[in-house]
């Protein structure tokens, strides 16, 4: 572990396993520096900065949680979060076709860092999310419930066993795989019915 970012790497592993309460406290503690950083780049009303912050923090959290950002770190975690915020800011201005935001030399390192491909955009999975949300509606209970408890609410097999009154954890796994197969059939039908419907590469 590189000592330079040792503290941040410890924090990173806490974020991966942290409770909702811990994530919320982190969310609150990064707000002030994030607000100051974005204000330095471009004056925006607080309400807009807060909206940008929620998006950036969501991406930040999921990149860590899903292992997209893993040790060894190449920057402070805070810098990583700011970089995501800056990317969203650029995207926002590009969409609104306004003048580009300024960039001072101190931020160039951040800019270079966030041209790395491991930044997953919050919007990138929107198409897949909507597709799966719609297909889940066509899945019968208790299949829908077991998939939501597992993959969305991230319950353990033991918790699912209790919540759904299933005899064993092995039975939970068996049912989940059967339900995933059913969902996959719906995906197949959809792909065959609309072959040109694909997310943007």
């Amino acid at each position: 572990m590189d000592d330079k970012y040792g503290e941040d790497e410890r924090l990173l592993s806490e974020i991966k396993t942290g409770s909702q309460q811990f994530i919320k406290s982190l969310f609150q503690s990064y707000w002030d520096p994030f607000q100051a950083f974005i204000t330095k780049l471009h004056g925006l009303p607080d309400e807009e900065i807060a909206e940008l912050y929620v998006r950036a923090f969501t991406t930040f959290y999921f990149n860590i949680k899903d292992g997209k950002l893993a040790p060894p770190l190449r920057s402070r975690l805070k810098t990583y979060l700011f970089g995501i915020g800056r990317n969203y800011l650029l995207k926002r201005f590009k969409e609104k076709q306004k003048e580009p935001i300024g960039l001072d030399p101190g931020l160039e390192a951040v800019q270079r860092l966030f041209q790395q491909p491991d930044i997953v955009d919050y919007y990138e999975l929107e198409w897949q999310r909507k597709m799966v949300e719609n297909l889940l509606k066509h899945l019968e209970e208790p299949c829908r419930k077991i998939l939501i408890l597992t993959f969305i609410e991230e319950n353990s097999d033991d918790a699912i066993k209790e919540k759904m009154d299933i005899p064993s954890e092995v039975a939970v796994r068996q049912r989940r795989f059967n339900c995933l197969e059913k969902l996959r059939k719906l995906v197949r039908q959809r792909k065959e019915a609309y072959p040109s419907e694909k997310p943007k590469e």
């Binding site: 909507k130 799966v132 998939l147 993959f151 969305i152």
Partner: peptide, 11 residues
């Protein structure tokens, strides 16, 4: 597609 969809829903 399914697992990306789930990830999007969690996000």
């Amino acid at each position: 597609l399914i697992f990306e969809g789930f990830r999007g829903m969690r996000q």
